[in-house]
Computed example of a mutant assay.
Amino acid sequence: MMTAGIGEALALGSAATWAVGMILARQLGATLPPLALNLLKNGLVLLVLVPLAMLFSAGPWPQLSASELAWVLLSGVIGIAVADTLYFRALNELGAGRMGIIGNLYSPLVLVLGFLFLDERLGLQQWLGFGLVGMGVLLVSKPRREWKTQPAHTLRGVLFGMLAIALMAVAIVMVKRILETQPLLWITALRLGGAVGGLALLAALPAMRHRVAFDRHRVPWGRLVVAALVGQGLSMVLWLGGYKYTSASVAAILNESASVFLVVLAALWLREPLGRRAFFGVLLTFSGIACMLLGRATP
Results as ranks from 00 to 15, higher is better:
G295M: 06
C291M: 14
F286G: 02
W269P: 01
M22K: 11
L35S: 00
A81R: 00
F115E: 00
M208D: 00
T17H: 05
M22S: 14
N92E: 14
T149Q: 14
G43P: 02
S249H: 01
A228E: 03
L109R: 11
G241W: 00
S287R: 06
V137H: 10
G136A: 10
P33M: 02
G198R: 06
E272F: 03
V175H: 08
W221I: 09
R156T: 13
F130H: 09
L74H: 02
G275R: 08
K244F: 01
Q232Y: 11
L52N: 06
T285L: 01
G275C: 06
V48L: 15
P60W: 14
G21W: 02
A228K: 10
S65E: 13
G131T: 11
G114Q: 05
S249D: 00
F115I: 01
A96P: 14
P62D: 04
I187Q: 09
R144A: 15
H153R: 15
A252P: 07
S57H: 12
G43F: 00
G233R: 12
H153F: 01
S287T: 14
S249E: 00
S247C: 02
L262K: 11
V77E: 07
G123I: 06
G157F: 07
A251D: 04
K148H: 14
L49K: 11
A258L: 09
L190N: 06
A9S: 13
A36Q: 01
W269M: 02
Y106H: 14
V263A: 15
G100W: 04
